[in-house]
Structures are given as structure tokens and as C-alpha cells.
């Protein structure tokens, strides 16, 4: 990957969205790349809409400001589609990854994107509940992002999920998150 990849995450406080951006950045360090992961800073309230960003590049990242035109836009909470405009600043060839139980074609119609823009959907909340019993969609979404972006392999992502959860959580939770990331990678579908 020669050019810069920019990602914008939409989530709600407490869903692990910022952690997901961090795990993705960490995994992308491989191959000597430069990475950034940062949230939009504001009052930190559980449930409030938040944005987080990634930049990944083989060149040094000097830009220190929010991403305006993200190539990939991830929506971690489906209810955000009704309350904020997640397509803001999306380039003509933008890729959307949406956490939803709905059919990809329905999400595509809802987003009202152009033909060149791609929409991928996965039921990350259900995968998370199946895998470790909590509605935390971040691990499946990181798996899906690895698949869709091609920036990093599933194996590297799994290693990083293990590393970032390893110190804080029990083995059961870690294994659940690994399963969730793997299923996110496998189950994400284009609409």
C-alpha cells in the first residue's frame, strides 16, 4: 500500500470504538508503516455519538487534524444512521462498513450512496453477543475492516486483539473477541 488510507469511525461512547481504532492502528504498524488513531475529543459520555479516525501510510504522517475525506467509513451503531449524516465528506470511491442486522441492499438504499461507492454490512452486535455475550461490536468490525481494506491480514489482527485485551481481560473474553474478529472478517457482505 503506497498511498495513505484514512478511516472514520462512528460509534457511541462505551462501545469500544476508540479501542477498535487503536487495535487497527497497532496491527497496521507491520511492514514499517506509520499509523495514527485518535478520537474527536469532547465530553466523554456513555451513549453519546462519537467519531474516531485512523491514518495509515508508508510515508511519515505529519498531518495532525481530523480526517475530512475518509476512504473508509465505519458505523458501529446502526441507530446513528437515523441521527447523523455518516456520508459527510465521503469521496466518490468511499467504502462504508455498517453494523446492521438488515440486508445490505436495504442499508445501501438508506445511505443513498452513488454507484461507485461501496457498502459492506455485518451484524457485528449479534456476532459479539454470540462470541462473548456482550453487545460490543468493535472486534467484529476490526475483522471486517481488515478484510475490506486489505491493509492487514486476519492473523495480524488476531494477534493484536490478543495483545490489546490480554492484560485486562480473562481468557474467555479474549477468546470470544478473537472469535468475533474472525467472524467479522468472514461474514462481512457487500451490498
Amino acid at each position: 500500500m503506497s498511498e495513505m488510507l484514512e478511516v472514520r469511525w462512528h460509534g457511541r461512547g462505551g462501545q469500544g470504538t476508540v479501542t477498535a481504532a487503536k487495535v487497527f492502528a497497532d496491527a497496521c504498524l507491520s511492514g514499517g508503516r506509520y499509523v495514527q488513531a485518535f478520537p474527536e475529543y469532547g465530553p466523554e459520555r456513555a451513549g453519546a455519538p462519537l467519531k474516531a479516525y485512523n491514518r495509515i501510510s508508508s510515508q511519515e504522517l505529519r498531518m495532525h487534524c481530523p480526517v475530512l475525506n475518509p476512504k473508509i467509513i465505519i458505523v458501529a451503531d446502526p441507530t446513528l444512521l437515523d441521527s447523523i449524516n455518516v456520508t459527510e465528506g465521503a469521496p466518490d470511491d468511499a467504502i462504508f462498513i455498517i453494523n446492521s442486522s438488515k440486508d445490505p441492499s436495504i442499508i445501501r438504499a438508506k445511505l443513498n450512496v452513488s454507484k461507485k461507492q461501496k457498502v459492506f454490512v455485518l451484524d457485528a452486535t449479534k456476532i459479539a453477543i454470540d462470541s462473548f455475550g456482550r453487545p460490543m461490536p468493535n472486534s467484529p468490525l476490526v475483522g471486517a475492516l481488515a478484510r475490506v481494506s486489505g491493509a492487514v491480514s486476519l492473523e495480524t489482527i488476531l494477534e493484536d486483539v490478543k495483545k490489546s485485551f490480554g492484560k485486562k481481560f480473562a481468557k474467555k473474553i479474549i477468546d470470544g473477541n478473537l472469535e468475533a474478529a474472525k467472524r467479522g472478517f468472514e461474514e462481512v457482505k457487500e451490498g
Partner: peptide, 12 residues
């Protein structure tokens, strides 16, 4: 170092 922009942001 710049608050939040550097202090709380992740980079290489």
C-alpha cells in the same frame, strides 16, 4: 507537547 492532539492520540 500539544494537549489531546498529541498527548491523547495514538501514533507510531
Amino acid at each position: 507537547l500539544d494537549g489531546f492532539i498529541i498527548s491523547h492520540s495514538i501514533e507510531r
